[in-house]
């Protein structure tokens, strides 16, 4: 059965705790929407992580015609909090869909507060990515706590949830189902809509999609260590 389509437009901020999978989701979501005919732009606003950032996938994304807002090339590997002017430009003119991938936790979300002028008066959605197989986001209260911290640091409001249960290569179909139940409960308790969950392409055939009421974003892993190959797009 085909999964339901993800409905997202305008400015979409991808937030969440460290290692929740924001960057992998931003890349895959950008490609998914682009394939659906949407004009997509992506901003790498991760100023807190030194490795595994959206910028690692810049060639792939530009090849697919996805517009990117990154720090200048010569500073791409710098250990500096470089805030590209392209980002506030993108916020002012988001086009059909502008994805903003921020760093983890409240520390990573703090930079959003700097951009308050650009955001002023504009509609946006801020999604909290939740991997219940991560420490700190394995309980409802832990997730709500992270939500509060991110909102306080960003001075913005989280508007929805993305479920991203995974143990990378060791993820089982049961993990996906249990993870779905968890974020569903989080959605019920917080009143925040569950926008979609994720599952790796390899696992998708093993998952009973009738059990899942929300869209499922197929993940083709792009951020892999050097001894592995990224999934083909």
């Amino acid at each position: 059965m085909k999964t339901k389509s993800i409905q997202l437009e305008g400015i979409v901020i991808i937030a969440g705790n460290y290692g929740s999978g924001k960057t992998e989701i931003s890349i895959n979501l950008a490609i998914d929407r682009k394939n659906a005919g949407v004009a997509v732009r992506v901003a790498d606003l991760d100023l807190v992580n030194p490795y595994f950032r959206t910028r690692e996938a810049r060639q792939l994304l530009s090849k697919l015609g996805i517009e990117l807002a990154l720090p200048p090339d010569e500073l791409l590997q710098a250990d500096l909090p470089i805030l590209s002017p392209l980002i506030s430009g993108m916020i002012r003119q988001p086009g059909q869909l502008a994805l903003i991938d921020v760093g983890g936790d409240d520390a990573g979300a703090t930079v959003l507060a700097t951009l308050a002028d650009a955001f002023a008066g504009r509609d946006y959605q801020m999604l909290q990515v939740v991997n219940p197989l991560r420490p700190n986001s394995d309980t409802i209260s832990g997730c709500l706590n992270i939500r509060n911290e991110i909102e306080a640091a960003a001075k913005m409001t989280i508007s929805g949830i993305v479920g991203n249960a995974n143990l990378i290569d060791e993820t089982t179909p049961e993990d996906i189902i249990r993870g779905y139940d968890f974020v569903k409960q989080l959605s019920d308790e917080s009143g925040l809509p569950l926008h979609f969950i994720t599952a790796s392409v390899a696992l998708l055939p093993e998952i009973n999609l009738n059990r899942i009421a929300c869209p499922v974003l197929a993940i083709r892993r792009q951020l892999v260590p050097p001894w592995k190959k990224a999934d083909k797009i």
Partner: peptide, 13 residues
Amino acid sequence: GKVLMKGNEAIGE
């Protein structure tokens, strides 16, 4: 059980 962790977090834990 198993959890997904960044190396640096796992070292601290």
